[in-house]
Every structure is written in structure tokens, then in C-alpha cells.
């Protein structure tokens, strides 16, 4: 389980470092997919494929668009989507903070920069 949380945290860190880059946004959605997959398996919370599909389509639209105004509009939709999923990802990290067994070396990774996760990391120490 630790490795999954590690992946989710680092995806968030990437997003947090460059929240406006498409690659970082993709990382955020990958964290979201991991959370959905985990919750679906462990807690039997079903996810909707249409939701993931919609996210992929929006990202694709952004990539395909050359018009700057259009790009800004699509980015605003993407940002709203990120905001709405952010809570789910952070709730996951808080729920599983009890079994985060960080060793000292983990702090080399500067994960404490992840906004909103600082508390989770500190609690687990």
C-alpha cells in the first residue's frame, strides 16, 4: 500500500510544482485514477468510466487546440475539473495517513512541499 500512496503523493508534488503545465495536470489525473482504482478495490466504491473518458477527452482537446483563446477556455475547464477531484485525492491521503510509515530517507524527496499534504506527512512521523 505504501508504494501506491508514494505514487499519489509524488504525482501531487509534480502538479504542485507546475500547476499550469499539461504534463503536471496529467500527473494529477493519474493520481486521481490511482485513488479511484484503490477505492474501488478496497472499499468497493465504483467509479465511472465516463468520468475518466471525459478527462482524457478534455486533455486531448487542449493538446489539439491551436487557438490561444480556446486554449485558455479549455484550461479553465481543466482547472475546475482538477479542483473538483482534488478533495477526493486529499481525502484518500488523510484516510490512509495512519499506515504511512515514512523512514528518514523519505524526506530527501521533499514531499512535504505538496500543498495540503503537509499535515498528513507530519502526522505520520
Amino acid at each position: 500500500m505504501f508504494i501506491i500512496k508514494d505514487m499519489v503523493l509524488k504525482c501531487l508534488q509534480v502538479y504542485n510544482d507546475k500547476p499550469d503545465s499539461l504534463g503536471s495536470i496529467q500527473k494529477f489525473f493519474k493520481a486521481y485514477s490511482l485513488v479511484l482504482g484503490y477505492e474501488s478495490l478496497i472499499n468497493n466504491k465504483p467509479y465511472r468510466v465516463s468520468e475518466i473518458s471525459m478527462i482524457n477527452k478534455i486533455l486531448q482537446m487542449y493538446r489539439a487546440t491551436v487557438n490561444d483563446d480556446m486554449k485558455i477556455q479549455i484550461m479553465s475547464i481543466i482547472k475546475k475539473t482538477v479542483d473538483s477531484k482534488n478533495k477526493v485525492v486529499h481525502t484518500f491521503l488523510e484516510d490512509y495517513s495512519d499506515d504511512m510509515s515514512f523512514d528518514d530517507d523519505m524526506f530527501d524527496l521533499d514531499m512535504v512541499y505538496v500543498e495540503g499534504c503537509v499535515g498528513v506527512v507530519k502526522e505520520s512521523v
Binding site: I3, S33, L34, Y38, S40, V49, I52, D105, M106
Partner: peptide
Amino acid sequence: FIKLSSIEMSIVELFISLVLHCDIQNTPI
């Protein structure tokens, strides 16, 4: 996209299930 999104979640689920069944689950990356 719809097809791939469904496959994507299957990969995520399978990946997590596989990870949960081996000792790599407690390893930091």
C-alpha cells in the same frame, strides 16, 4: 477514449491488486 479509459482503469485496478500481493507494496519509490 471511452474504450481506452475503461482499459486504463482495469490496468490501474490490476496494477494495485498485483502490488498489494507482493512485498513491493511497502517500498518507497
